[in-house]
């Protein structure tokens, strides 16, 4: 399944990664090399095999419903790129 330039553009958009026009051919080639490696997997017969998501196959532990956090907004926003009136600022969101 070789990727075309348009596939790479689509993936980059999904991942919100800006693409450099000039790098596109090389990026496409490298990705195709990697996919070539990965695609070896397609030959493996996995019929009837349950997927394994976690090595130990444990189950989720539940936390008691209690408030344990206090307001640390100032500390958290000290490292933010842009804040005003306690809000994180981003370029206008259009709906």
């Amino acid at each position: 399944m070789a990727l075309e330039r348009s596939d790479v553009e689509k993936i980059a958009h999904l991942a919100r990664l800006g693409l450099n026009e000039a790098d596109l051919p090389r990026t496409t080639e490298t990705l195709n090399n990697i996919l070539g490696l990965i695609d070896q997997m397609q030959a493996v017969d996995t019929a009837g095999i349950e997927p394994l998501a976690h090595p130990l196959e444990a189950t989720q532990r539940l936390r008691a419903d209690a408030v344990s956090e206090e307001n640390r907004r100032d500390a958290y926003q000290a490292i933010a790129p842009a804040v005003q009136d306690g809000l994180y600022l981003v370029p206008k969101v259009i709906e």
């Binding site: 842009a82 005003q84 809000l87 994180y88 600022l89 981003v90 370029p91 206008k92 969101v93």
Partner: peptide, 12 residues
Amino acid sequence: SLHEDFHGMSGI
């Protein structure tokens, strides 16, 4: 997202 105008920005 609060769409009040923070100089063309939205507040989160």
